[in-house]
Amino acid sequence: MLGDVRDTLKEVIQAVAPIALIVLIILIFLTGSLLTDLVNYSLGVLMLTAGITLFLIGVNNGLLPMGEAIGSDLPKHGSIYLVIFVAFLFGFLATVAEPDVRVLTNMVEMVSNGGIPRDPMIISIAVGVGIFVALAMLRIVVGVPITWLFTGGYLIVILLAIMTPADYLQIAYDAGGVTTGPLTVPFILALGIGLSSVLAGRSALTDGFGLIGLASIGPIIGIMLFGIFV
């Protein structure tokens, strides 16, 4: 456990430090920030670093084993409908809990002065991820090649883009990027790996993976439909 903490902290510092330092240098020498601003910034970076570290340790020791336990238990019940339904719930619930999704949607709500409200956005993204994780599971069971699903998904995204209001377009594509955050990825992968290792004759490499890529198409479509119909 302690070794875990050290390794995770090292990785987080490695990822955060370079940009955090460059930003600090710019704040000091270029933008002429006040000392209190610099103190706030530095404390914020420390909080963020500690936060990501604790978060990842928590995911590895809590949500991830939970996901694996459920993923490997599911096929025992022999019902494909249960698998698909649980896959939907996995995608939906992980997205609701995903911090990157919260950062994006908070930012959108702030920049649009509340014109694009946060909670309906989170729900649209989560439903989109849920549906595509369910589709990805169905794909593993039915055996549709991944290239077909990606091509179909991307074509839908291109077609819908033409109909989407200008305000929602960029946000929709960004939503596809934030769903691949530090919670959703391991959690959904746990389900996929659990399932595809049990389903005989399917290679974990080409079937278990591709799941995250498919999951990130869902929110794009979700936000586009939200923009078109609201």
């Binding site: 420390l46 936060g51 990501i52 570290t53 928590g58 995911v59 911090p99």
Partner: peptide
């Protein structure tokens, strides 16, 4: 842990 981490992360951001 995840909860405390998420609070610190969001507040830090």
């Amino acid at each position: 842990f995840t909860l405390i981490g998420m609070i610190l992360f969001l507040q830090g951001v």
